[in-house]
Structure formats: C-alpha cells, structure tokens
Amino acid sequence: MILLDTQLLTLFTAGALIVIGIFAAIYIDNIIKKIVGLSFIEEGVNLFIISLGYKSGGVIPILLPGMNIKWFANNSAYPLPQALVLTSIVIGASTLAVMLALSMVLYKKHGSLSASKILNHESDMGDEL
C-alpha cells in the first residue's frame, strides 16, 4: 500500500512539475527562468515515464543466472520506460544547451534577459536581410 502511494506521489510530482513548468514558460519574463520552466516540463514528463515502469515489490529487469523465468516475468519492472527516458533525457539536454546558447547570444546583443524586450522587439522585416 505504501509502495502504491509512492507511485501515486511520483505521478502527482510529475504533474506538478509540468504545471509549474508551463506557468513559468508562459508568465515569467526572464529568459533563463523561462528555460528552467521548460526543463521542468521535460523532467515532469520523464518522471511520469519512469513511474509507469515502476512495479510494486518488483525487481530490476535483468535476468540473472539461476532465476526462475516465470517468477522473473511476474516480478520484474517493465524495462521499456527506462530505455525511453534515457533517450528523452539526452534530447532534453541538447535542447537546453541550444536554448542557453541562444540566450547568451541574445543577452550580448540586447543587454537584457527580458523576453518581452528581446522576443517582441521584432521590426517590420522585409528589409536589411
């Protein structure tokens, strides 16, 4: 029962991270904080994936010598979410790196990290290509 609650708690935490992340991405003006908020969304989804593979009282999904196959099949955690989340973390890190690099360039250009100043200043375009 306690373990089941652990899984529920993980799911709630994942949900909270996603909601906080979306709030930060929409309402916070500072670009770095906005990017941190976007990372929250990413990590919330990762936590959600991990919690899916959780099995109450389960064992790691590696078949060791001497293990009964039927017992292993019934008690091992589901390995697919763990494999997926590793890839997702790598993608998240790459995206984060690109966003931070762009923020650095834009900070040097505008002397500010305010999203409303940097992202909304765009001119009429068409000229000065």
Binding site: L102, V105, I118, L119, H121, M125, L129
Partner: peptide
C-alpha cells in the same frame, strides 16, 4: 543572415 534570426530561433 536574416535580421532577428536568433530571436526567431529562440
């Protein structure tokens, strides 16, 4: 080389 390309990228 377009103007404001970094802003659009972000």
């Amino acid at each position: 080389s377009a103007k404001d390309n970094y802003e659009t990228a972000l």
